[in-house]
């Protein structure tokens, strides 16, 4: 597992109350999300963070959406 922890650009679809990441850009490369495997939530004080475990067909990535700051981060590459 490699820790990354950088804010990135993510393309998502809101489907009802579900959030589905479709692609993300990290270090000027675009990664297509082929599968969304797992989601969970975390509270950091008042901030709620929704975490997504996704795959591009090769690696597994952990993306995090901070609902208060409204930003996305690439947390880990697994």
């Amino acid at each position: 597992m490699v820790k990354v922890g950088t804010i990135i650009k993510v393309g998502v679809v809101f489907q009802g109350s579900k959030i589905i990441p479709r692609w993300f850009i990290w270090e000027s490369r675009k990664y297509e999300v082929r599968s969304l495997d797992f989601t969970w939530e975390e509270s950091q004080g008042l901030e709620k963070i929704i975490r997504f475990s996704v795959r591009d067909g090769i690696n597994s990535y952990e993306l995090a959406y901070n609902t208060i700051q409204m930003n996305w981060a690439l947390e880990n590459i697994c």
Partner: peptide, 10 residues
Amino acid sequence: SVEQAANPNL
């Protein structure tokens, strides 16, 4: 099992 479910590569 949680780790395997979160990352099916495992």
